[in-house]
């Protein structure tokens, strides 16, 4: 008797839960309707400028000749299907594999070592009390972002070149001249250092904005608990921007396949291909003098796919571990 009653209630509960789920969904939908209206301009933008041209990816699976048809679009349908021909063509080239390895290594270095630096800088800047000093420091640190890689490259060449200041110091201290730009064991570090120098200050902006959102009452509470400055940073500021940090990291993962094309294109040379040639520079070099649209599309697709996997993976892990995610 009692058993029967209990199953009844369970059934009932499930049923009513389902009903209330549906009710809730209907409620959410009704509540969402006005928000959908706000989404319209954004959706239109991506529809027109991103999704409409998306069919261009079929070029990667055809032997595309832009002059084959009456116009380039017509040429897409006229060009013959070749399936995975260009995909396979990529993988028989040993230099492409080398470029992929380099891309991952350089990107990983930039994420592991380079990513935390703006966070630390932002925390440090936030601790400066004098408003004037703080503003000047902020302004100065974001200056390098505005200098193009061509100029930054020349600058680091002056600094780290064989007759640069660094080598003069090394030699005066009894060392031997290091060819930082021609030595595979140094080159990646040069890339890392210059990218940190150029972008770290700029990277602090997001975190500084996030810090402004922390409730000052939390700091007051911490002070009342006699927390010192380090403890305040650790227990109040850092948790306050953790969501932003995680989000920035996930977004960064979505850009792994570009290990810094603009930078490397300027700074590398043939003696450091083994350590510095990335997918972007390799494709650029190979593409010289020929117009292989299909091959280019395939490489783009490959990059997108890896970025997608990494970003979704990052988002998934973050949701599981930190309960923070982009979606």
């Amino acid at each position: 008797m009692t058993v029967e009653r209990r199953t009844m209630t369970l059934k009932e509960a499930k049923l009513s839960a389902k009903r209330s789920d549906r009710r809730q969904a209907r409620y959410r939908l009704r509540r969402s309707l006005p928000l959908y209206v706000l989404l319209i301009p954004g959706l239109l933008m991506i529809l027109v400028f991103h999704y409409l041209p998306m069919y261009g990816v079929v070029i990667g699976f055809k032997d595309y000749n832009i002059f084959a048809g009456a116009n380039p679009i017509d040429a897409i349908s006229v060009s013959p299907w070749v399936g995975l021909k260009f995909w396979n063509k990529l993988w028989i080239q040993s230099k492409f594999k080398q470029a992929i390895t380099n891309t991952f290594i350089i990107s990983a270095m930039k994420v592991v070592i380079g990513f935390p630096i703006p966070v630390i800088l932002a925390l440090m800047i936030n601790e400066v009390r004098r408003t004037g000093t703080k503003r000047v420091l902020q302004t100065v640190m974001y200056l390098p972002h505005f200098i193009s890689w061509v100029v930054v490259g020349a600058l680091f060449m002056n600094l780290l070149g064989t007759s640069g200041i660094v080598n003069k110091i090394i030699v005066s201290m009894g060392g031997t001249t290091q060819k930082f730009f021609m030595d595979n064991k140094w080159f990646r570090w040069v890339l890392l250092l210059s990218s940190i120098w150029k972008e770290s200050g700029w990277g602090t902006i997001v975190y500084l904005a996030a810090i402004t959102g922390i409730d000052p009452a939390l700091y007051e509470a911490a002070r009342i608990d006699r927390a010192n400055r380090f403890q305040q940073i650790w227990y109040v500021t850092l948790p306050g921007i953790a969501g932003t940090v995680v989000m920035m990291l996930i977004l960064r993962l979505g850009g792994i396949m570009d290990a810094g094309f603009a930078q490397i294109q300027v700074m590398y040379n043939s003696t450091v291909y083994k350590s510095g040639d990335i997918i972007g520079t390799y494709v650029f070099r190979e593409g010289l003098g020929k117009m292989n649209w299909s091959q280019g599309t395939i490489v783009g697709l490959f990059n997108s796919l890896i970025n997608l996997i990494l970003m979704f993976g990052g988002n998934y892990l973050s949701r599981r571990w930190t309960e923070k995610s982009i979606w």
Binding site: S270, R285, E286, L288, G289, K290
Partner: peptide, 13 residues
């Protein structure tokens, strides 16, 4: 037109 540029780069490198 197809090969010259890329081969030239290959050699120089």
């Amino acid at each position: 037109a197809e090969y010259y540029g890329a081969l030239n780069t290959l050699c120089n490198d």
